[in-house]
Structure formats: C-alpha cells, structure tokens
Write a protein that binds this DNA or RNA. Structure first.
Lengths: 239, 239
DNA sequence: CGAGGGGTTGATGGTTGTCAAGGGCTGTGG
DNA sequence: CCACAGCCCTTGACAACCATCAACCCCTCG
C-alpha cells in the first residue's frame, strides 16, 4: 500500500530492511475518502498522520471571505501531514481534491520512531524540510512570477514529483483538478486561469484538458517557468 | 548569547537544564557580519547552522533577472538554517539585512542530538515545522491578500515574534529595513510599498519610519490584516 | 561638493480581477 | 426519453490594482 511512499524515501536516502519493516508496521489502517472531503480540519487536535496512497490532495488555507490558497499539492507517496505530529494541530485543511486513499499512522508510532530510530527520524525531518522548500518556491512564484510562469512552474514541479513515483507516462500525467482548484494553487482567478491555459496550449507548450497534463515541449515549459529542480533535493544522500 | 533562542524554545515547550546545557555546549563560535552579507549561499554545501543573536536576517530566493523574493524574516533567537542540517544545502540565501551576530552550531552536534536527545530533536523538528507554517501564511498573503493587508499582516507577525523575545516596547519595535527590502517580502514594487505605507500611516494604523515600526492601533492593524496568530503555535506543549 | 543611497511623487500602461452571460456535458427524475 | 439542474469551462466588456518609467528631494559621507 505504501510502496510509493518508500519509493519517494529511497529516492533521497537509504532505507534499511529493518527501517522499512518499522515503517510498514506503523500503518494502523487505511481510509478511502471521496473527492472534496476535508481529511484533516485546520485547528482540530490530531493524533494520526496520513500517507497518500492514491489520488491528489492538498493543503488549503481558507480566508473565510471566499478567498482561499492552496499551499501544496500532494501526490501518491506523500506524507500529507507528518508535521501534525509535532504541531499537534494544523494551520490549514488537508483536502482530498480527487477520490483518495490514505494509510494511517498513529502519532504514537512516530513518537516511538523519534525515541528509537534516529536515522528514520532524520529522514522524516528531511521530508518536512522538503515540504518547506516547496512552500518557499511557491512563495517565489506567487510573489515574483507572472501567471504564465507560475502555471508552467507548477506543471514542472508535478512532472518531477510524479515521475519519482512512476506516474508520468510519455510526457503526460493525470491531474484531475478543476480550473478553480488550479486557480487556488496559483493565486489567480478562474477566468485568468482559463486564459493562461489557452495561451500555453496555443504556444504548443503544455495542455491541461480532461484531468490530464500533456507536456508537448518540456524544455520550453521549463524555460517559461524558469524551472530549477534543485529545490526538490533529488540526489540521494550518502549516509 | 543564545538567551533569546532559549526564550523562543521555552515559549513552546519545556527544556530541561540538561537539555539547555547540551544546546549551549553546541555553540562552537560566533560571527559578526555587516549589513547586506550573504551568510549562507544557496546551493553551497554546508556543515554548520546559525542561530541569530542580534539583528535582522532573511531567507532570500533570487530569480537572477533582478526579481527576488524574501520568504521569511528572522529575528533574534531564530535558528535561521537548522533545515540545512537535513537538506545539506539550502535552496535560498541567508542574508543579513542589518549588522548581525550569529552563534554557530556544527552539524555534528545536531547529528549527536538526533542520536541521543529524542525530545530535543522533536523540539527542533517542531521549529522547522513552524518555519513552514510561516511560509504557508506568506503564501496565503502573496496569493490572496492585497498589498495593504499583506503589509499589515507582516507587521502583525513580527509584532508577535519580537514580543516573544522581548523586543517590543510600547507598541513599537525596530525593523531597520529599506522599503526595497520590505517590497521583497511583500512581492510588490518599492513604489507601491511607499504608497501602501503612506496609506496605513494616514489611517493612523501603523507607521514605518527610520527603521522602526510604531503600531498606533493594534486592533485596527489586525483587522486590516485579517490576522489570526494560531499559525504561530504560541501555546506551550504539555510534554 | 559631488556621488550615492534611500525615499517620494506624477503620469501612464499592463496584468489581472470583476461582472455577466452563455455553452457543453453529465446525471437524474418525471 | 426528454427536461432540467448543476457543474465546469469559455468569452467579452470593463475596472482596479499594481508595475513601470522618470524625475526630484533629502541626507550622509568621502
């Protein structure tokens, strides 16, 4: 069930058989939730964290006045809320953007990990730091890239992250979001999202249609985005 | 030297005398750097992390074409780059925005901490998760708040964070940044920063002048910002 | 005294937001 | 089987926020 999660971990560090067993042993159950479900509500106390097994989820901050910002998209293999273990509550919702399956990990298990598995603790600490690096790149996009570059950059990021877990085929990947949800990632209005998508499509760079991203020209997409993947920390650590 | 750092830690968790000794024992030296110094350069390998003792520093992402985005401001007591311990290099610069003093902590010491001090490891893990929460709030600002609210929100955040380490007096605190640097926090141009500052000043809410932030009406400032401090996780944990 | 950094102001333009309407598709129930 | 609701996408007209460009002021410092 959490094979993709291990794939993601092993892309960046060495996980021993014993550590793998410990991780697998920590999964206390699983949950299937339909599209548009709030999996974890902001500010609620929590005692379990969720590994995304399948589907697309996100971290969503809601201003209440109708304005909302997605601060990260989650792909299969992601630990959507390990940070909940140390924070005790989240400052944002975890929302399933499509039908999703999650593997559940009690915080007690993470507590035990910190007591007895120093290396694994560092691996998951790294994981939350990677999330923070993604947040920073999004802040850069939101602050200093125009709508076109911002959108291209998001498509580049997802390309890399999904390829890591084997979900890119022939330069295309599934992303069954609405244009409204995409807007909430990019900090623009749905109308402008629509027009930006049309522009990228007409230039033959990338297409977003019927829940799929089809990259026609990856080099061009990266150029439009100004994409530099180093913020995703893709090299494996030497232990 | 790192009293403010301990103040910050103890605001959110219980630190034993033994743990305090371990932290203090980890400081291998200190560094004084003048304004505008890059303390840690993006993508350089690193083996030491820095606790900010005095001054204001930031995390800065540079697009190269003149566009740059500050993703977090650091105040005295902050561990500006603990995340460098697990990431091995940073995806952004650490820049001293004023004359700064830092306490240096070798990564070997943090490594030892993860092996022998599980609770302290959780404390510092929490710390990086708090940074990520701040990143998310900034992403929300950059994506969904207008310039006025964004600026007000930043002043609110700094008010809380500086108060925690005893650096707010009579509703005012030092913030010796230029308007250009403030612009790089807010994702707007210096010209617009200037006009937004004038607006907030003329409304009697807050004043930013000669390196000081003077809050005239905190309630109004928080209202303009839509400020909710819960993302700063101010309650102390019960161990 | 001149250079340079920082701040201020005015005029103008562009990216993006807002408002409003309509089209296509899907699912459902009469 | 058709009517209709609802969601999603698309388009056009217009407005607003913010960027750009350019100039000027003030202060400090060599």
């Amino acid at each position: 069930m959490i094979d993709k999660h291990l794939l993601k971990l092993r892309a960046r560090d060495v996980i021993s058989a014993e550590e793998e067993a410990f991780i697998r042993g920590g999964v206390s159950g699983s949950a299937k939730v339909p599209r548009d479900t709030v999996v974890v509500r902001a500010f609620d106390p929590i005692h379990t964290s969720n590994i995304l097994v399948s589907g697309i989820a996100c971290r969503l901050k809601d201003l209440g006045n109708g304005r909302r910002q997605i601060t990260e998209l989650h792909v299969p293999g992601d630990f959507t809320d390990v940070h909940g273990f140390s924070l005790k509550y989240l400052d944002h919702d975890i929302l399933a953007l499509t039908d999703c399956q999650f593997a559940l990990v009690p915080h007690a298990h993470l507590q035990e990990m910190t007591e007895r598995h120093a290396h694994l603790t560092r691996v998951y600490w790294f994981g939350t730091n990677l999330d923070a690096a993604i947040h920073r790149e999004w802040a850069l996009s939101l602050g200093r890239r125009d709508a076109t570059a911002r959108m291209a950059h998001l498509f580049c990021e997802l390309y890399v992250r999904l390829e890591l877990v084997g979900l890119v085929r022939q330069g295309a990947y599934d992303l069954p979001l609405t244009q409204v949800e995409l807007s909430d990632c990019l900090g623009i209005t749905p109308v402008h999202t629509n027009r930006t998508l049309q522009q990228l499509r007409s230039e033959g760079v990338v297409e977003f249609r019927s829940g799929q991203v089809i990259v026609h020209d990856l080099a061009a997409l990266e150029a439009v985005a100004g994409f530099d993947p180093r913020y995703l920390y893709l090299q494996r650590m030497q232990r």
